[in-house]
């Protein structure tokens, strides 16, 4: 069986031709990552999930998070559901672990920016003004 895929590992977007027989043969890839992507995409497609979660007392009402590695596609909506129920409190640093070892995949969900508290934001502005 033959299949065509567009590689999404990097912005180059190589057009891949895949022959699925006893082995999976990949053509059109410019790097090893492309071959691995094609094999993964055929056998076990995965995506990084990036979304936001609620944060109490933060500069903004939500903070962006991501999975530390791509997760199987079928886990995306269950994980979104789980994350919609979570609320953390500011301040948090970048890389703060929101969920650990999700679905026993050895993958975590972490914040992708620091979030200071509302009060702290105000204070920095006042200091700036007085200087």
């Amino acid at each position: 069986m033959k299949k065509e895929l567009t590689c999404i590992v990097c912005p180059l977007g190589c057009s891949l031709e895949i022959e699925i027989g006893e082995d999976i043969i990949v053509k059109g890839n410019k790097c090893e990552k492309g071959k691995n992507y094609a094999i993964e995409e055929i056998t076990n497609p995965k995506r990084i999930l990036t979304t936001t979660i609620k944060i109490k007392n933060g500069k903004y009402k939500v903070v962006p998070v991501k999975t530390t590695a791509p997760i199987p596609k079928e886990y995306i909506f269950p994980l979104l559901e789980k994350l919609s129920e979570i609320e953390i409190s500011a301040p948090v640093p970048i890389g703060y672990k929101v969920l650990e070892n999700i679905f026993q995949l050895s993958i975590d969900v972490i914040t992708t920016r620091p979030m200071e508290t509302k009060e702290n934001t105000r204070k920095t502005k006042e200091t700036k003004k007085s200087t």
């Binding site: 990084i48 990036t50 936001t52 970048i94 920016r113």
Partner: peptide
């Protein structure tokens, strides 16, 4: 970058995949 929370940034410059806020940070 702060609102581009999706991944795909930095593959050329940092040789790793970051989200927008991480790239800015």
């Amino acid at each position: 970058l702060n609102q581009c929370i999706h991944p795909g940034f930095g593959l050329i410059y940092f040789k790793e995949e970051l989200t927008g806020p991480e790239y800015a940070y």
